[in-house]
């Protein structure tokens, strides 16, 4: 149900997908509403990234607690990411896994790796070739949202699909 609503929203106005993720900010300008087929040959990497985010709903998914388990919301976003990646087989992505500041240094590295691997495995399940993806863990480095409040911690437990070329 939630997934249907999400996809319907994407089909109309891509920016509404961000409303469900408090604290998130778009890093790239809102792309013009153009189809991938006509845009691909002239797209630079920034435009590709913007198109990926717009059509997938988000380039990132969130995790609960110490877990590396994909929620239904995360799966919906990854399915949309997979759809886009299937249409762009020339693109290579790096999946970056992160832990939150309440974790300890070494464990955070391992948990970030697990999250990145979980996303990679799920995208492979959806037909994305392994060669199209790499993973890296940032542990509790590169914190996205500062603070020790539960909401801030939750926004750091994430995996980000980054287009590298």
């Amino acid at each position: 149900m939630r997934r249907l609503i999400l996809l319907a929203a994407l089909a109309t106005v891509s920016t509404t997908a961000f409303a469900q993720l408090p604290g998130l900010r778009r890093r790239d300008p809102v792309p013009p509403a153009i189809g991938p087929q006509q845009a691909m040959p002239i797209m630079g990497i920034d435009a590709l990234r913007a198109d990926f985010v717009a059509r997938s709903g988000s380039d990132m998914v969130y995790f609960g607690g110490d877990a590396a388990v994909l929620t239904p919301q995360a799966q919906a976003i990854l399915q949309a990411q997979a759809n886009w990646l299937r249409q762009h087989p020339e693109v290579i992505v790096r999946i970056e896994g992160y832990a939150d500041l309440s974790d300890t240094r070494d464990h955070a590295l391992a948990v970030g790796a697990k999250r990145a691997e979980e996303v990679r495995s799920y995208l492979m399940l959806l037909g994305i070739p392994a060669a199209q993806m790499t993973t890296v863990s940032w542990g509790k480095e590169k914190i996205a949202v500062l603070g020790s409040a539960p909401a801030a911690l939750a926004l750091n437990r994430r995996a980000v699909t980054v287009i590298v070329r």
């Binding site: 590396a68 070494d106 590295l109 391992a110 790796a113 697990k114 691997e117 863990s137």
Partner: peptide, 9 residues
């Protein structure tokens, strides 16, 4: 030391 392979460390 630790080494990560897939989901396992």
């Amino acid at each position: 030391f630790s080494m990560q392979q897939g989901p396992n460390t």
